[in-house]
């Protein structure tokens, strides 16, 4: 709660800053906790429903916690033409969850984005904000395997 307070202080408890405030909360917690929304509503004195509308309207907000790794497949036009949709399907098979969901073990969040403006690299996948240019289904499988192995190795160390 103190952190929320600090974020609100950074901008000022005014309506015009609520989107910035929510963006910072999202950046800090990787999602918008319900309590945080209620706190902001109370402090800025705006109806909770208005915040809830904002939180569900804009792309960058999420009301559910995110996984350890966030995988984003770009579906901008250039990426679509060069097979972005196939990457989405490949990930759905590999992870066993649909776009927008979190794997049951909490490891991977799987999302799609509409163009990050790096179209020369199409098709593009972002994993934890790192760009993987000219992606193929094969390369994607390999990267996932590497992430999984890294975790296993980390767990093996007592």
């Amino acid at each position: 709660m103190q952190e929320i307070e600090a974020i609100i202080e950074r901008y000022g408890a005014q309506r015009r800053h609520v989107i910035s405030i929510l963006q910072d909360i999202q950046a800090r917690f990787h999602y918008l906790p319900k309590d945080a929304l209620m706190e902001v509503a109370a402090r800025v004195r705006i109806p909770l429903i208005d915040l809830y509308s904002i939180a569900t309207f804009y792309n960058c907000f999420s009301l559910l916690p995110r996984g350890e790794h966030v995988i984003k497949v770009c579906l901008g036009t250039a990426c679509h033409l060069k097979g972005g949709t196939r990457l989405v399907e490949a990930l759905e098979r590999e992870l066993g969850v649909r776009e927008g969901e979190l794997t049951p073990d909490g490891r991977f969040s799987f999302e799609t984005v509409r163009c990050v403006g790096a179209c020369a690299l199409a098709p593009l996948v972002l994993i934890d904000e790192r760009y993987y240019p000219k992606m193929t289904q094969r390369k994607l499988t390999q990267v996932l395997a590497r992430l999984r192995r890294a975790r296993q190795a980390a767990e093996a160390v007592p």
Binding site: I49, D50, Y52, T56
Partner: peptide
Amino acid sequence: HAIGFVNR
């Protein structure tokens, strides 16, 4: 202000 639009 009890109800509102959600999603888009």
